[in-house]
């Protein structure tokens, strides 16, 4: 017994090394479950506070580009408004109650990355601004990610550049849908799968959100087809999608809240449990 102790004491660096590495592995393996419950990520007050003041300085260097993006979006929205006004001018207006399922909360990106295998995004809005987990994040150019973790005044989420998450996407032209996942290689391209061979594809076809997932409304831009391929012995195309949002320069985004998500969830669980018609 005594010699065992002596051996342990003599080799303590190795034991300590093993203990610390085991702790790290536990961290790595449990990170998904940690993420919801723990404060060891960039949405906690200290880390997000530091990122917030840092990005407050750095964002000035990107202002020209942000301005251009915003004015483009402005022009697009004005065009849409014009169309609506033309449509309504000679129609009878029926007073209907405010009935929009989705609401948009503007936020600023305070931390973001593109060169990791799992990329995360931190925003400067949190629970007190109405942000909840599982809300979508979009930029003027297209979808960006999904909120996973919310603190009092900050939130963080997975960006599209994170293989732990997939988006339900469809071809704008034909309506066929599949799922879009990033493969970890190129920050400008993601992969769309589950589109069967009989669908006609063309380079440059637009890919938008499908609206099936309740996270994003239908028809938000994701990107365009950059290359596609029919692998031998499979039933689905492999499609590479050029993402329309430039993840390197994202500054301002909007978080999409779905007011009906609770209703959808109860409906879904009722259907799955077979209690709906009873």
């Amino acid at each position: 017994m005594r010699s065992l102790f002596r051996l342990l004491i003599k080799n303590y660096p190795f034991l300590l090394f093993l203990v610390l590495e085991v702790i790290s592995v536990v961290f790595i393996v449990n990170y998904n479950s940690f993420q919801r419950a723990s404060f060891l990520n960039s949405s906690n007050a200290v880390t997000a506070g530091i990122y917030n003041s840092y990005s407050g300085v750095v964002q000035y260097f990107r202002l020209a580009r942000v301005n251009a993006e915003l004015s483009e979006e402005n022009a697009r929205l004005l065009n849409m408004l014009e169309n609506y006004q033309n449509a309504f001018s000679d129609s009878i207006r029926i007073a209907h109650k405010q009935d929009s399922a989705f609401q948009y909360i503007p936020a600023r990106v305070i931390n973001n990355s593109v060169n990791k295998q799992q990329n995360y995004i931190t925003l400067n809005k949190g629970r007190k601004d109405g942000i909840k987990p599982d809300q979508g994040i979009v930029s003027p150019n297209g979808i960006v990610g999904i909120v996973t973790n919310v603190s009092e005044s900050y939130s963080m989420g997975l960006s599209v550049l994170n293989p732990r998450w997939s988006v339900s996407a469809k071809l704008q032209k034909s309506g066929f849908y599949g799922s879009l996942v990033w493969d970890g290689e190129d920050y400008q391209r993601a992969q769309l799968s589950e589109i069967p061979f009989h669908v006609n594809l063309q380079l440059g076809d637009t890919i938008v959100t499908s609206g099936y997932s309740s996270v994003f409304p239908e028809g938000i831009l994701i990107g365009t087809i950059d290359a596609f391929d029919r692998p031998e012995g499979e039933n689905y195309y492999t499609i590479s999608v050029l993402l329309s949002a430039d993840f390197k320069s994202i500054t301002y985004v909007e978080v999409i809240g779905n007011n009906r998500i609770e209703e959808l969830r109860t409906l879904k669980s009722e259907t799955e449990n077979g209690t709906a018609g009873n």
């Binding site: 590495e21 592995v25 060891l40 990355s113």
Partner: peptide, 20 residues
């Protein structure tokens, strides 16, 4: 470094390894 880059455990593992 992990806490700041949302990669809990990865840098910790590598840092302890080179320390050893």
């Amino acid at each position: 470094v992990d806490v700041f880059s949302n990669s809990l455990g990865i840098h910790t593992f590598a840092a302890v390894f080179i320390a050893y």
